[in-house]
Design a protein around this nucleic acid. Structure first.
Lengths: 152, 152
DNA sequence: TAGGAACAGATACCGTGCGAACTATCCCGC
DNA sequence: GCGGGATAGTTCGCACGGTATCTGTTCCTA
């Protein structure tokens, strides 16, 4: 592999994939061992952050996962009493997702732990370089989402 | 604290996870529909890039996956006649991984397509910002790998 | 040199993501 | 109003990641 600038371009994708897996392992380990011994805590975080009665379709879109992937997560959270699927008064096909009090409490604890872990993982990086990198990733994200929906 | 910069810090992990999934979907779709209708093409790329008779343990380490995860990929590639597991003359526990001629050919085709797709996805980003971002991700990668192996 | 720890790889099983196919409901045109 | 296409959610089976455990081999040491 070349070590010039082109190298960053060539190995960017593989680096991204490995990094995401490692990041997920690290964060999951922290959250699951300290607070919430189940996956699907990401659903709680998103629901807590948006704070609205989302429909499943919208939550799936926000989380950038597919409907069926979300269903199983919600089944578990529902069984655990953390999330309820309320009926939508206007559309009997749809469900409105709401956190139960226990779910809201769990979400807050997870958010706190998540913030701590991520801060630890990102310690030593300057705000400026993180913001620049995050902006680049954000643009890439938009491009990929557009590509997924629109023409390939 | 600096709330505008803190945003990048707080959402960095979630962004990373979503982005990696989207990236993988985009690249997998391109590779699988044009060249190689199976996953595990990443194994071919790595074997082709290192070019040596790696042991499975070493390849797993390079790819940052676990041994058992690699075994299944190799089973498929072996069945497809793209990779062979040769006996190590010095250590009868170990296997040396080699690409068959068909495997080498497939790897080259995949590399070419991969380069094209990634170039397309990264078009519009400057070499400088990509290098900076990639360097940051690389440091983060090292930190996560160390964390996984060593103390939490 | 016999015995046990360490190690490479394989196997079995679980979690999480996906797409395809299905059900129930909505909406649009007639 | 009603038949057909679109939409929200579910179910099912597949792919790929992981851990725990097993087998065979090596290596170290008493």
């Amino acid at each position: 592999m070349r070590s010039e600038m082109g190298g960053a371009r060539a190995s960017f994708g593989l680096r991204l994939l490995q990094l995401a897996r490692l990041w997920r392992q690290a964060v999951d380990a922290e959250i699951q061992k300290t607070i919430f011994p189940d996956s699907g805590w990401r659903v709680l975080v998103w629901l807590s952050r948006t704070g609205e009665k989302l429909r499943q379709k919208d939550l799936a879109a926000i989380m950038a996962i597919e409907g069926p992937s979300l269903v199983r997560l919600l089944d578990n959270l529902d069984k655990a009493g953390l999330v309820r699927r309320e009926l939508d008064t206007g559309d009997r096909r749809a469900r409105r997702l709401v956190l139960t009090p226990a779910g809201r409490e769990a979400a807050l604890a997870i958010e706190a732990r998540l913030t701590a872990v991520e801060a630890e993982l990102l310690a030593g990086f300057s705000d400026e370089e993180l913001a620049a990198c995050s902006a680049l990733l954000g643009r890439l994200d938009q491009r990929l989402q557009a590509r997924r929906g629109g023409a390939g």
